[in-house]
Simulated assay, not measured.
Amino acid sequence: MVCDRCISTVRRLLNDLGYEVNSVRLGEAVISETPAEDELHDNADKLRQDGFELIHKNQSALTEDVKSNLIGYLKRIENEVDPPKLSAFLSDKLHRNYSYLSNRFSKLEGTTIEQYMIRLKIERVKELLTYQEMTLSEIAWKLNYSSVQYLSNQFKKVTGQTVSDFRSELDELDRKSLDAIR
């Protein structure tokens, strides 16, 4: 997944800007000193040039935390037979009531957490289809879909094309990285 590469890139960028980096995880970087306000603007521009955004506001930070945890949840879905419910997972990770997270996310993003998660899953389906190493049944099982038909219907609803059409157009693929889903 692209997320580890993003973490590595942010660490390098912050080091290049002269900061001592304490930690970097998806959606958050901790540095040893607090930059001045004018430095923040300059650094935000430099980060933006490499496709990253500096988040100042608490609400924006919360939605970015939700997004990064949704990517983590997607990994968990793939690796566990019986993953927790999405609402329980997010509440546990972010130490907030799920309805609060859901309301904040919907207001700022214009979509629900569930719809965003569906788009993430469909992008992952596209990725797995691109590798051509798994059948659609295996992909449905791996991503915790109740049936291949349900996955196929959701794929068509989100992408506007059938899985078969997608497979036949792999050369003209228009995929997004998971952390670029908006």
Rank of each mutant, 00 (worst) to 15 (best):
D4F: 12
R5D: 09
R5F: 13
C6K: 14
S8A: 13
T9L: 08
L13F: 05
E20C: 01
V21D: 00
N22W: 04
N22K: 10
A29L: 10
V30Y: 07
V30G: 00
E33C: 08
T34H: 05
T34M: 06
T34F: 02
A36C: 02
E37N: 11
E37W: 11
E37A: 14
E39R: 12
H41D: 14
D42K: 14
D42T: 13
D42E: 14
K46C: 01
R48D: 15
D50F: 01
G51W: 11
L54K: 05
N58R: 14
Q59P: 02
Q59E: 13
A61M: 09
A61E: 07
L62W: 02
L62Y: 02
E64D: 05
K67C: 07
N69R: 08
L70S: 03
G72I: 09
G72R: 14
G72V: 09
L74K: 05
L74G: 04
L74Y: 09
N79R: 13
D82H: 15
P83Q: 01
P84W: 04
K85A: 12
L86W: 04
A88D: 14
A88K: 13
D92Y: 06
K93V: 13
L94M: 04
L94G: 00
H95P: 00
N97W: 02
S99K: 10
S99P: 00
Y100E: 10
Y100T: 11
L101N: 03
S102R: 12
R104N: 06
F105T: 03
F105C: 02
F105V: 03
S106Q: 14
G110Y: 00
T112E: 02
T112A: 02
E114F: 06
E114M: 02
Y116H: 15
L120R: 05
E123N: 11
E127C: 02
L128V: 01
L128I: 05
L128R: 03
T130G: 02
Q132C: 00
Q132L: 00
E133R: 11
E133D: 12
E133A: 10
M134Q: 06
M134E: 07
T135K: 05
L136T: 15
S137G: 09
E138N: 06
E138G: 14
E138W: 03
I139N: 01
Y145P: 09
Y145F: 15
S146K: 13
S147I: 10
S147A: 10
S147Y: 06
S147L: 12
Q149M: 12
Y150F: 12
S152Q: 13
N153H: 04
K157L: 06
V158I: 14
T159S: 09
T162P: 08
T162D: 06
S164D: 05
S164C: 00
S164Y: 07
D165Y: 09
R175K: 05
K176Y: 09
D179R: 11
I181L: 10
I181W: 01
R182M: 07
